[in-house]
Amino acid sequence: MIEFTLNGEPRAIEIEPETPLLWAIRDELGLTGTKFGCGIGQCGACTIHLDGEPVRGCLTPVSAAAGRAVTTIEGLDPDGEHPLQRAWIELSVPQCGYCQSGQIMSAAALLSGNAAPSDADIDDAMNGNICRCGSYGRIRAAIHRAAALREEEGSA
């Protein structure tokens, strides 16, 4: 039995410990917002947070989550109103949308440690996430927009 918290809820699953978190979350725990893209840590579609740090769900065994906090796109904000999510909607970032959960989770980790990232900071944090629809320019703009939203709301 492996126990961890998933989006704030305590969960316990009986599963082979080497099972990647991606598949434990999607197939066993039923949260499908986290996506499968490559299985080798190259595309970032499965990016989730482990104790707030971004990890690739396809390469992280579920055993590594024991006793720790796992956050997925569904748990990023209780109302789905994280500044990044609002900025993503405002700027119509998603096209097919399949990579966007991973993009937003990578961006959220960036913003949590860097309130006003530069373009270079964004490149560094985001170049592990592939978008075949080519929404990169809008992702960059939306990260800046989310940083500004947080700043406005923090100072209000």
Partner: peptide, 27 residues
């Protein structure tokens, strides 16, 4: 005006084919 599918896609709520879930489903 913004895309009508932006919100579900920004919240991980959009369902793609790979997200299909039915009772007794085997992969």
């Amino acid at each position: 005006f913004p895309r009508v599918d932006a919100a579900v896609k920004a919240r991980g709520q959009a369902t793609y084919g790979i997200d299909a879930r039915v009772p007794g489903l085997l992969t």
